[in-house]
Design a protein around this nucleic acid. Structure first.
Lengths: 341, 341
DNA sequence: GTGAAAGCGCTAACAG
DNA sequence: CTGTTAGCGCTTTCAC
């Protein structure tokens, strides 16, 4: 078993190293007989090609890097990332890529990691999580020659390829659902407004109200930061405006809103309806179960890997944008009558 | 900037390739003058060594793999893993290792991934999450020659090195805290009893009660599976036994217990006190805030990496066990009077 | 359809 | 202290 190389397989099969290489890499110009014989020996011996040697000779690594920028750490507590990582890992498995994870924690590790990440000799491609406005790691990395895909619409780098969910449309659907239920005073706790997610979902909220000629005022919109605690407090502000519904920029924030309403003795959905965004596991477990907008996050991860691989194979393609649709999931917190299913 | 190699740096510095190599690798036997000159050029040019070439020549990759076995996916929704990954990533950054993530999702990907993971030529070492009893991926991987550290006590592989938290002691402290508060009917929702975590925490529960000559019966112990939903249901069973306190095998399960008590109109902590285990973010946000046992999970990740690197450097050392201590965090759900802080 | 030969960029003896 | 010399295991022309 020890020290299996192409050479040793070749000897066993009575062929040359190149032929074995062709077989391993599924290349043409090998007779079926030879191919079968080699494949048998590979199976018997459990030979696995040496990845470093391969990379060195072929100049590609079969490794994809997932980069979580420093500024994202703030909401790294969000279960969103767990799912995202899961989807991306799954995509890598499908495509026989290895996933390397780069969690940037502070300026120091950023300084150290960026040059390493930007080397084509280390990584075939990068998926990087979109950041907030102030963080310009993405433009920085985009300067390099490693194929790059941003997960989420980058708020400060217009040229980079990205994959995103249609947040505007999703929020609009959520709010229109509330409108359809006869709500008149629909307010919102937004996500951080220096992120595209926060901005876009707020945009969808406004769009829905405008489309239905419903009024809203500045006081009906409170900026959150994607945390439950902050949303809990924001709810206090909204309550002064007597909402009959609250649209939340994320499920995590919806949890904070629900908790506040419970503490204030306000019935959900009877007095105030609540709708979230994301449909992460906590949504189903919320009290009451949360009506929310489902992001296809696992598929998002899969698609991200797929798209990145396309970019790797077609580096000259220019900017690519992939937008995925969302879906309304009706549970109890909005007060809609659910057809018996 | 293009195609920087050792050779090109060597030429610029007027020295040989080996000398540059020595400088890059912080090896002795280079005069300070030469070292400085080379270092300057490296900085100017932004040269980064080619990792594949390095691996091929030196037979080590500077990559460690974090493997999450298939059977763990069940509770991959647990925020525990997010934190664990964070700690391990941080440890890797400190030690200039790259982290590769292997999430095994199904039998098919397991078959494909295991041989790849087990190659020394791919990975310098592996951290693998402990599994439940039926999954023997760990013994399988332990057969290979890649340095291995299990995160959590492996329930079915006694020879492997591992790092764990003192779950028995932690649970014991939790229950003794309840005893100290005068509780007489302390029951428990355990974790899955085919995992060491589940078993050990139950063990600590029993130990505490025995040490204080308190009775408990089979009916006081209900097996959960680390999910909130299951814990919600389990609570129903316990309620028939009139508990005055419930110790939960994890924070996630404590959330289910709290929810059930709320729905039954039972006051926490006045009628029933609740204590969890983990101290993940949801604990602080629980309603009421959860008294729990804190796992030093970030430090756990750091220590795991550190320990694995030791094993890599010292492969002959035999089994290593690292046990980390836990800590009681008192919040509202246990009813202890908290000294004004 | 197959083999020989030349590297990929680096490390690691070995000389000096 | 520094340079020379072999490789590491694979891919990839180029002949045949």
């Amino acid at each position: 078993m020890a020290n299996l190389t192409l050479e040793s397989i070749a000897k066993k099969a009575g062929v040359s190293r190149s032929t074995v290489s062709r077989v391993i890499n599924d290349q043409p110009n090998v007779s079926q007989a030879v191919r079968d014989r080699v494949l048998d020996i590979v199976r018997e011996t459990g030979y696995q090609p040496h990845q470093a040697a391969r990379s060195l000779a072929s100049r590609n690594t079969h490794v994809i890097g997932l980069v979580i920028p420093r500024s994202v750490q703030t909401f790294f507590a969000d279960p969103y990332f767990q799912r995202l990582i899961q989807g991306i890992a799954e995509g890598c498995n499908h495509s026989d890529f290895t996933l390397s994870l780069f969690l940037i924690q502070d300026l120091q590790s950023e300084k150290k990691l960026i040059p390493r990440i930007m080397q084509r000799s280390q990584l075939d491609g990068i998926i990087i999580q979109a950041t907030h406005l102030g963080d310009n790691i993405i433009p920085q990395i985009a300067l390099g020659d490693v194929p790059l895909l941003v997960a989420g619409r980058p708020i400060n780098s217009s040229a980079a390829s990205y994959i995103d969910v249609d947040n505007v449309r999703g929020a609009q659907i959520a709010v229109e659902h509330l409108i359809g239920l006869g709500k008149q005073r629909i307010m919102t706790v937004t996500g951080a407004l220096d992120t595209s997610v926060g901005v876009d979902r707020l945009e969808g909220y406004k769009k829905a109200l405008r489309a239905h000629d419903l009024p809203y005022s500045k006081d009906w919109i409170v900026e959150g930061d994607f945390t439950e605690t902050q949303a809990y407090q924001a709810t206090g502000l909204l309550l002064a405006q007597k909402p009959d519904a609250i649209f939340c920029g994320s499920d995590v924030m919806a949890a904070g809103v629900l908790k506040r309403l419970r503490h204030e003795g306000i019935a959900v959905p009877d007095q105030v309806a609540v709708v979230g965004f994301d449909d992460l596991p906590p949504a189903r477990l919320a009290d009451p179960p949360l009506t929310t907008i489902r992001q296809p996050i696992r598929r998002f991860g899969l698609k991200a890997v797929e798209t990145l691989i396309e970019i790797i194979h077609n580096p000259t393609f220019g900017q690519i944008r992939v937008i995925m649709e969302t879906e309304l999931v009706i549970r109890d917190s909005c007060g809609a009558k659910i057809a018996t299913t």
